[in-house]
Amino acid sequence: MTTTGRNHDKPLLEVRNLHVAAGGVEILKGLDLTVNLGEVHAIMGPNGSGKSTLTNALAGKPEYVVTEGDVTYEGRNLLAMAPDKRALEGIFLAFQYPVELPGVREREFVKTALDAIRAHRGLEKLSVREFNKLFQEKITEMEMDADLVKRSVNVGFSGGEKKRNEILQLAMLEPKLALLDETDSGLDIDALKIVAKGVNKLRSPSRAIVIVTHYQRILNYITPDYVHVLLGGRIVRSAGRELALELEAKGYEWIKEAVESGKEISV
């Protein structure tokens, strides 16, 4: 398809000098990031560095106000798109705190989302039978209860179940750009392995994954192509997988001091 050709020429996502404010406070202060199809990026940073602000702003959460800068997605202005339009175009945010939807049943919700996304891509709706089969496969992969489909979305789910449900939805909706906002927080090691397995299965030349995390633990299971350090609302270092290990060993203070003193770090 011609669109595929175009995608090879341009980055999937290009963030330039992004400034974002929430509640009247500027949190992102000139962030740059380039993500190509097929890549896995990890964005690491201490609390308050702006990690969730970045993912929420990219997904279009209304209370995150872009005050300066540009975001281009598949060559188009992402910031002009409504949140649902971004989802239809292939962006998926796995929430740090998945929202409970009382009375909204998981199956109905995911089916409606998938129908909308497929329609946008010019694909037929899946039949109920096809959908159920696919959904059941993914539920099994995520080692979740079969009765999940009848339950209200995230209501009465444990913390780990909520996070697994995010990856389940990710697997069902097959986005081009998956943003994982601290998906590892609050997970025990078994749940973390399940989540990582689910994410790894989604690695593909036609998809990019951005993992936002405080700890490098999840990167033991999902190996990133690039690691970025987010500090004070900007990306201050970018390197390969080894940067995460360095951070793990030395902590964020090390890089904070290095940045403040203007020293280059070789890793």
Binding site: R86, L101, F109, T112, A116
Partner: peptide, 18 residues
């Protein structure tokens, strides 16, 4: 809740109706 649903591709009206 509306934003969560929109982030999955449901438009505002559908999300609210749900």
């Amino acid at each position: 809740a509306v934003f969560y649903m929109r982030s999955r591709g449901l438009d505002m009206e559908t999300a609210t109706a749900f």
